[in-house]
Design a binder for these strands. Structure first.
Lengths: 167, 167
DNA sequence: TCGGCTATGTTTAGACCTAAACCTACCGGA
DNA sequence: TCCGGTAGGTTTAGGTCTAAACATAGCCGA
């Protein structure tokens, strides 16, 4: 144990520790996956706190953003919403229910079929998303500013490729 | 709307959509942060399901792993645990309570001071973590296998640097 | 020795998510 | 026309997390 209990353990130290403690376990994934999870956790926490200051929660903003980005008439079915957000249909249903309760979206039956449910932004939903998105994106610019543009591009490419290989 | 509602929208498409819908909002962070969050979500979901098959949950395994990796005598204070896992003290407290209830760890007062709480692996905890870690790491090797070794190294370096710039 | 400050943990309230069960609408063949 | 199968959504049970309020223990200056 070092004297500073608070020092973050590096991915390399984690891999080395496993090789010392359980020789033979494959550790090569650790050096990628550990910093990936760690960065994602920091970003998720930061996003939650930033949005809390702005008066929304991340789940609701994701919903409103997806609708807003879709353009006129700002209407998508729950299935389309689920496809874009990588959460289960049940989670979408709950998100829509919360946002509807708060007057940010409205549920209407889709034109296409009677069982499909379409979700539309209300005026309040429009106002909220338009007030928040610019601030959020402006803030997030600062989060990646620690990397040079070339590094950001390289990182984005590698992540895209990993994403594709996973999905 | 395209005919295939299920197609995943690319980060580039998301950035383009914002520029079309709300011209002027800064979008350069999207190309990095969106695939990062997406990959992290896929990996988290995969880990949860894999561990579910192996009979543990991710939170408990993180706790047991941290203790096991620490080496003899497999004992850390809750503060040391919190420092390594990027989770709040309250979450650590709940994790330890659950693992203690399941007989995987034991709480003892630390030697150093009476208010510090030390957590130790029980025999059952040892058996569980040793049974699971090898399988989990072996499985996770396959998740990053879609990238060449050089790309994995480059990705790990970039993530390390981003992590450092965030923390 | 007293009072306050800091460090450590625990508890509680509230939010969110997944998995799985469930409910309807629709479709297509016999 | 029936009936099974499939697709689209919702509900429920259970689990985890954060933030914030609490509780204690130890420390330190006046």
């Amino acid at each position: 144990m070092t004297s500073d209990d608070r020092r973050m353990v590096s991915p390399r130290q984690i891999a080395d520790a496993w090789e010392r403690e359980l020789p033979g376990v494959p550790t090569s994934s650790i050096r990628v996956l550990t910093p990936l999870r760690r960065v994602a956790k920091r970003l998720t926490d930061d996003r939650r706190r930033t949005l809390d200051r702005l008066g929304v929660d991340p789940a609701t903003l994701d919903l409103l953003s997806t609708l807003r980005r879709a353009g006129e008439p700002w209407r998508l079915t729950t299935r389309e919403l689920a496809a874009q957000t990588l959460v289960t249909a049940g989670a979408i249903s709950q998100r829509v229910a919360r946002a509807e309760r708060d007057g940010l979206v409205a549920r209407t039956t889709s034109d296409a079929s009677r069982r499909a449910v379409a979700v539309t932004l209300t005026d309040a939903g429009h106002r909220l998303v338009e007030r928040v998105v610019g601030e959020l994106l402006t803030h997030e610019e600062t989060l990646v500013a620690g990397l040079e543009a070339a590094d950001r591009n390289a990182l984005a490419d590698l992540l895209d490729r990993l994403d594709e290989s996973l999905g």
